[in-house]
């Protein structure tokens, strides 16, 4: 039961972060867009956001005395292929779980609704097929 509360509170904080960036800087808190602009060497605020993102797990460590759990089961070639697809796809689709999934849905953007339904379905199908194939 406790991990449901942790998920809910974590989600509320993610929403707070998106609201802060929108109300203060007028920007969408979308991780793939921020990294994309960082790669194009635009606006140092993108770098500041990424540094904050990296500090996040340290704050968790400071507060709870242990690292957040990160269990990666996929093989390294699978990880590399997945990373390529996530990077390419998030740029092609103009957003990812944060930009479309949080900020976009909160704005009631029709594009984001389509994106979220598409990536949830594709992700669900992929996990199911991999389980059936024993991967």
């Amino acid at each position: 039961m406790t991990h449901y509360w942790a998920s809910l509170f974590g989600g509320l904080l993610i929403g707070l972060s998106a609201s802060l960036l929108l109300l203060l800087n007028g920007r969408v808190a979308g991780a793939s867009g921020i990294v994309g602009r960082l790669l194009l060497a635009r606006a140092s605020t993108n770098a500041a956001f990424v540094i904050g993102l990296l500090i996040g797990p340290l704050l968790f460590l400071a507060g709870f005395g242990h690292w957040p759990s990160v269990t990666i089961t996929a093989s390294l070639p699978m990880i590399a292929a997945a990373g390529l697809m996530v990077g390419f796809g998030s740029r092609m689709g103009s957003g990812c779980t944060s930009g479309h999934g949080v900020a976009g849905l909160a704005r009631l953007s029709p594009r984001s609704f389509v994106a979220v339904l598409t990536f949830l379905s594709a992700g669900g199908a992929t996990v199911t097929l991999m389980r059936i194939a024993g991967l």
Partner: peptide, 26 residues
């Protein structure tokens, strides 16, 4: 582009379980 990109993103997300924000933070 929106649909194809999001589908590709979803496949990668399902394979590794990582999306951009969490992958960076991790």
């Amino acid at each position: 582009r929106l649909v194809l990109g999001s589908a590709l993103f979803g496949i990668g997300w399902g394979m590794a379980g990582f999306c951009p924000g969490p992958a960076l933070a991790s």
